[in-house]
């Protein structure tokens, strides 16, 4: 559907995207993950031709092209920078935004009503957008992004601003869209949700690919896909944990528990040996590494700064 080949984009002295290559396959949910400034939004804007790459090529699937030009009617977009007309009625706003994607106003009105009913907002159709709560305004923007049934939808932080219940609703909708044939490019920080719905994931850092693949593939690349949750009665040599070349370890600041992930190819015995040398192990539990663990382990501690790129 979308193929990046050695794409580079630079702003002044900052390389936002650096020789990035990846492909989004038709019918999949493809997640872009990375810390702030990793190049996610720049990549999305280049796909939409809001920015042009300095080098490399972006190829589009045939369903997104017409006489060589990008067919915007077949694309849906929920930008990270959210905004919607505040002073116009909800239904009219949706019909207008759908009309920009080529949707006939009569059909647009019918489809918009269906979506509003689904989000329990049908009785507010004639109200101005500004009268809605922030969460409900997010729903209006989500509807505007996908109501024309695009072939390819880009959802940048679709869960932000929603409570956990509505996050579940949105994640179900994304899967539903995928099942109905829409290819989805997703960028989000809610790891649990991304892990559950994404078919493939691309981890970005500094505009470059760190790793990509399915969850199982990512786990394998991070080791055997297992993690150890360890508590110590006494931790005499914490430096052995942080300096070890056989494992990655970090302490959960809320529980005090140590989360330890073996490096690829390192047998569990060697990991246990490092742990026992570091201190007296009290409890030890083996679980499967989740996306959050992989993310943290890939990037180290949380990055600060803003997502300018």
């Amino acid at each position: 559907m979308i193929t990046f080949s050695n794409v580079t984009k630079q702003f002044s002295k900052v390389k936002a995207v650096d020789q990035l290559s990846f492909a989004v396959q038709p019918g999949e949910i493809f997640a872009l993950l990375g810390p702030n400034g990793a190049g996610k939004t720049t990549s999305v804007r280049m796909i939409l031709q809001l920015l042009q790459p300095d080098a490399g090529t972006i190829r589009y699937g045939e369903s997104l092209l017409k006489t060589g030009e990008l067919l915007r009617t077949r694309i849906g977009y929920l930008p990270e920078e959210r905004g919607v007309y505040q002073d116009t009625p909800i239904l009219k706003t949706l019909v207008y935004l759908a009309s920009l994607r080529g949707m006939d106003p009569v059909r647009g009105r019918a489809v918009a009503r269906q979506w509003l009913e689904r989000f329990a907002l049908a009785d507010r159709a004639a109200d101005k957008v500004s009268t809605l709560s922030k969460g409900n305004q997010q729903k209006i923007q989500f509807i505007a992004a996908i109501m024309h049934k695009p072939d390819f939808a880009i959802l940048d932080e679709p869960f932000s601003g929603f409570d956990p219940i509505n996050q579940e609703v949105i994640s179900d909708l994304i899967r539903e869209l995928r099942n109905e044939g829409t290819t989805i490019l997703l960028s989000a920080h809610q790891m649990q949700l991304v892990e559950r719905i994404a078919d493939r994931i691309l981890l970005l850092s500094g505009g470059r690919e760190l790793m990509s693949g399915t969850m199982d593939e990512l786990r394998t690349r991070m080791g055997d896909g297992q993690k150890l949750e360890v508590t110590f009665t006494q931790l005499s040599h914490p430096e052995l944990l942080s300096a070890s070349t056989q494992l990655d370890a970090r302490q959960d600041v809320t529980t005090g528990q140590w989360v330890v992930m073996p490096r690829p190819g390192v047998p569990l015995n060697q990991v246990l040996e490092v742990l026992t040398r570091a201190g007296s192990v009290d409890t030890l539990r083996t679980t499967q590494a989740n996306l959050h663990d992989i993310f943290i382990q890939s990037f180290g501690v949380n990055n600060g700064g803003s997502d300018e790129a």
């Binding site: 804007r45 915007r72 694309i75 977009y77 930008p79 920078e81 919607v84 007309y85 923007q141």
Partner: peptide, 13 residues
């Protein structure tokens, strides 16, 4: 429209 961040959505269409 700039302040309400509507532009990106419209310009993508």
């Amino acid at each position: 429209e700039k302040q309400q961040r509507i532009t990106e959505q419209v310009l993508s269409a």
